[in-house]
Design a protein around this nucleic acid. Structure first.
Lengths: 160, 160
DNA sequence: GCATAATAGTTATGCGGCTAACTAATCCTG
DNA sequence: CAGGATTAGTTAGCCGCATAACTATTATGC
């Protein structure tokens, strides 16, 4: 691959990263959230209570990041951390009522963001987009960088 | 759009952002660079000397970020900042010899990263990828969010 | 020509994410 | 059942990028 093509890809990914995050930040600000926190809430809403190590894995961020995220979300009253009964090292994270209420709004916001993101693209492109992005993300995964499965694959191995 | 689709898109973008950046960081570390600095060097190599406001615009980052980037790259000897002759507010940024030498390696690295990123994807998908990503990035642009042009468009308006 | 607006850049501060280094609990193996 | 390895979580410190507030210069409108 020549430099021009490589640059087109890398720069596009970089710009998309910056802007998508900025957009998310703008939408989250009215809720008092910062980008990164919303995915934690959504994950808790989807999967139910879980310990921080599972969150770290699910969100694709390192444990220290989870420590800070959970601490701040706990301080703002959206989640609760309780010692795990069977493992005194672990702490179980779950949504509070306020957190559950917030998740509803976050989900709406999440939809608005996605719609904005793919606005004007052909339907087929939109349909293929998640698969392509996941394949690409899997390619650059720091750990277990297995080769990309064809886009559209819905197996667990291509999932989050 | 329902939440599942929106989540697939947003999460995929988020994961790709984290991992692509992490991969870049891993590749840049041996050169003593941190992610973000490489694009500044590449931009200088492509366009030639320019003032920081132009850099800010070209890289899609805010002026304070440019201040820090240029300061650190100047400290490590890769760029030089000289007062602009015609405007005493502005400072012209240009590559030093060491910076030019470094750019060669950064370009190789950039190609390796892009190849890794699209490994295993169909050729057609790879060809379409930059256009799609740019269209999507334009959609979420904080300023001037004009609707996406069809992927594959190579006009200047779709460019960086 | 002068006051006002716009622009270039810096400083201060905050957030998210990272690695490295550490504690505490649990697991495993001899 | 010890003792070393693994795992959960935290702390400290770094970097990139953002916004807000500021200074210094240049451009503009009367």
């Amino acid at each position: 691959m020549d430099f021009a093509d490589a640059d087109a890809i890398n720069q596009a990914i970089r710009l998309l990263s910056l802007r998508h995050r900025a957009r998310a930040a703008a939408l989250l600000a009215p809720l008092g959230l910062h980008p990164g926190q919303e995915v934690l809430l959504l994950e808790l809403a989807r999967t139910g209570p879980m310990i921080q190590a599972q969150l770290s894995d699910a969100l694709g961020v390192e444990p220290p990041s989870v420590t800070l995220m959970t601490r701040k979300l706990e301080a703002s009253g959206h989640i609760r951390r309780t010692p795990a009964p069977s493992d005194r090292r672990a702490s179980v994270v779950e949504l509070t009522e306020s957190g559950q209420a917030l998740v509803v709004r976050v989900e709406q916001l999440w939809c608005a963001l996605a719609e904005q993101t793919v606005a004007g693209l052909p339907t087929r492109t939109v349909a293929e987009l998640p698969g392509v992005l996941r394949a690409v993300a899997a390619n650059v995964a720091t750990r277990g960088a297995r080769p990309a499965s064809p886009p559209g694959t819905r197996s667990r191995t291509a999932g989050r």
